[in-house]
Design a protein around this nucleic acid. Structure first.
Lengths: 159, 159
DNA sequence: CGTACGACTGAACACATTGTTCAGCGAAGA
DNA sequence: TCTTCGCTGAACAATGTGTTCAGTCGTACG
């Protein structure tokens, strides 16, 4: 577990220019191609890099509204609620959190009006006692990982 | 704005097997290579596909604890708080939401004990009045986009 | 002190894919 | 009818891939 400095450089480089291949990568890093390839393979089998799936922008798909909903679940209904939420395409993400068996989910919708439809569909299920929704206005820090990768790489240097 | 059925198949295919190239993609989709390439280029310049950055697992980096923190901000301190949070590597994401100028941020930490350090760093800033944190226990629905893409693609068929 | 091991290098090879361009085709719209 | 647009199928040189090899280096261990 953990990554070293070269691993960190690989991830940062890939994050900045995802389309480059192993050969170009090895050139930029100043290492042999085999090294770059071995490191990349290791990072993937380690699970550090899960994959290179396309990053799709929901807004460009016609879903410009994002919201977070906190759900309160009736005792023992957790599994059912999860299964229910998994069937709703507009539920992009679901977490169970501390604090009375609550859940937090990320929603998207076509408009504020459409958000009502989504929420109705989300909470239109028996096991959900209460829902409180916060609509996202701005996203000053979009989902990012590079600073954390750099932090983790620096930590490894100290060893 | 919006995607058609072929676009949807391209995105889903890429999400399932990100490593395939344009040629292999065109074979699976049953279209000419030029078509696949043109569609992919268009999706990217449209902004529908933002990129193909590596999906890094914070847990594998040594940060297995995730939490969501709701922050209450002092009037007019929003910009300063944003700048502050952007400097914290463990802040993976930050949104401003409806409800009294609040913010919601996603945090990671090396352990529950380490989370205290992260939170202290996050809230150790003048403009933050109050913070309430929910620790993530399970993640029944990891961040996903495929169901939404399929929904959007189906919607386009009806036109 | 010597050895075994793991990681890295630099090279080679056949093969597949990429970027690019071309002419032709069919459907939709002016 | 004519034009435009997207798709097809093909070709080309250039580049990258998967794979393998022998050789080097530093370190941990006997």
């Amino acid at each position: 577990m953990g990554i070293d400095e070269l691993d960190g450089r690989i991830i940062v480089l890939l994050a900045r220019e995802p389309r480059i291949g192993v050969l170009e990568m090895s050139r930029r890093l100043g290492v042999a191609r085999g090294t770059a390839q071995a490191r990349l393979d290791r990072l993937q089998s380690n699970g550090v890099i899960r994959g290179f799936g396309p990053q799709v922008d929901p807004a460009a798909l016609g879903y410009p509204v994002t919201a977070f909903a906190t759900l309160q679940i009736r005792q023992g209904q957790g599994p059912d609620v999860r299964a229910h939420l998994a069937t709703v395409p507009e539920v992009l993400e679901l977490h169970t959190t501390t604090g009375g068996g609550d859940m937090l989910c990320r929603l998207v919708a076509r408009s504020n009006a459409d958000l009502q439809r989504v929420i109705d569909r989300v909470v239109g299920f028996d096991g959900i006692v209460r829902a409180s929704t916060a609509i996202v206005m701005e996203n000053p820090v979009p989902l990012r990982i590079i600073p954390l990768v750099e932090q983790a790489a620096e930590d490894s240097v100290r060893s």
